[in-house]
Amino acid sequence: MTNARAVPVLFLHGLWLHASSWQPWSDLFAARGFEPIAPGWPGEPGTVEHARRRPEAVAGAGIDDLTGHYAGIVRGLPSAPVIVGHSFGGLITQKLLGMGLGRAGVAIDPAPIKGVRPLPFAQLRSGFPVLANPGNRRRAVSLTASHFRYAFGNAIGRAESDALFARWTIPSPGRPLFEAALANVTRRSPAAVDTGNTDRGPLLLISGQRDHTVPDVVTRATYKLYGDSTAVTDLKQFPDRGHSLTIDSGWRAVADHTLAWLSRQLT
């Protein structure tokens, strides 16, 4: 394996989770010799408490804003990083990798990119609190504990779901959800990814097969879009896991699989 100490790892979170929710992953990757960083979204306050008090700090940020923000961070690193993203962070991971940024990417329950056709009811229901009001495109929106339970914590117990909600959730901009929802009818959609890039680094897509927010069929449809690329693209499905799989009590199994996959790709 390549000397992991020379490899930065950039962790990208998705909607409704704070960047600090990656701390267990960062600690594990650091113990394995990587150099992890988990910067927040543009304008995101440094703590969960501050982010909840200042929802306006992230309101209006869209996919292009996120991509430009993280592309700047990647270009400022001393060497090309591994990029690991969850949900909309997984979409941004794919965009950056398609742009030739990053030595490898892992997209966990990634938000749908342009070209993904399946639109399961569970996904619609998960996005309803934002998409039901067009005005939310310009706002930051919070989830309730009950909606977090449906969208993130459906595969774990209610007590654990409520604890994760209390610990990690923050208001998030509605704009990325609208952009992803309209991607297939938008000519220059910011959710478009260069899936045909044959020179990019290897990509691992991970799916929780009980995920309501990004159902397994959506991740499988994303995987199929890479069929014309000769670059490495792998898919790993975790049965009985939901959208909380990066932060709940089963996170270590996902992280360990990610590390094992990376050890093969970085050799």
Rank of each mutant, 00 (worst) to 15 (best):
T2G: 00
N3M: 10
A4M: 14
V7R: 07
L10D: 03
L10Q: 01
L10T: 02
F11G: 02
F11C: 01
L12F: 03
G14C: 04
L15G: 14
L15T: 12
W16Y: 12
L17D: 00
L17G: 01
H18A: 01
S20C: 11
Q23W: 14
W25M: 10
S26K: 04
L28D: 09
F29Q: 02
A30F: 14
A31Q: 13
A31V: 08
F34T: 03
E35K: 15
A38F: 10
G43I: 07
E44A: 07
E44W: 06
G46W: 09
T47N: 04
H50Y: 08
A51K: 05
R52Y: 00
E56D: 14
V58K: 09
G60N: 03
A61N: 12
A71I: 13
A71W: 11
R75K: 13
R75E: 12
R75S: 11
G76D: 09
L91M: 02
L91K: 03
A107W: 07
P112D: 09
P118R: 09
P118A: 04
L119P: 05
F121D: 15
R125L: 15
S126C: 13
P129E: 10
A132K: 13
A132Q: 12
N136F: 06
R137W: 05
R139C: 02
A151T: 09
F152P: 03
F152C: 06
F152T: 01
S161D: 01
S161P: 05
D162M: 06
D162I: 06
D162N: 09
R167G: 05
T169A: 06
I170D: 00
P171Y: 02
S172T: 12
R175H: 08
A183Y: 09
A183T: 10
N184A: 06
N184Q: 07
V185Y: 14
R187I: 15
R188K: 08
P190C: 08
A191C: 11
A191P: 11
A192E: 08
D194V: 08
T195R: 03
N197P: 00
T198R: 15
T198F: 06
D199I: 12
D199M: 14
P202R: 00
D211W: 10
V217M: 14
T219D: 12
R220W: 12
A221L: 07
A221G: 04
A221Q: 09
T222R: 08
A231W: 02
D234Y: 07
K236R: 15
R241N: 09
G242P: 14
G242Y: 10
G242S: 15
L245V: 06
A253R: 15
V254H: 10
A255H: 01
H257C: 11
H257T: 14
H257G: 08
L259S: 10
L259I: 05
S263R: 13
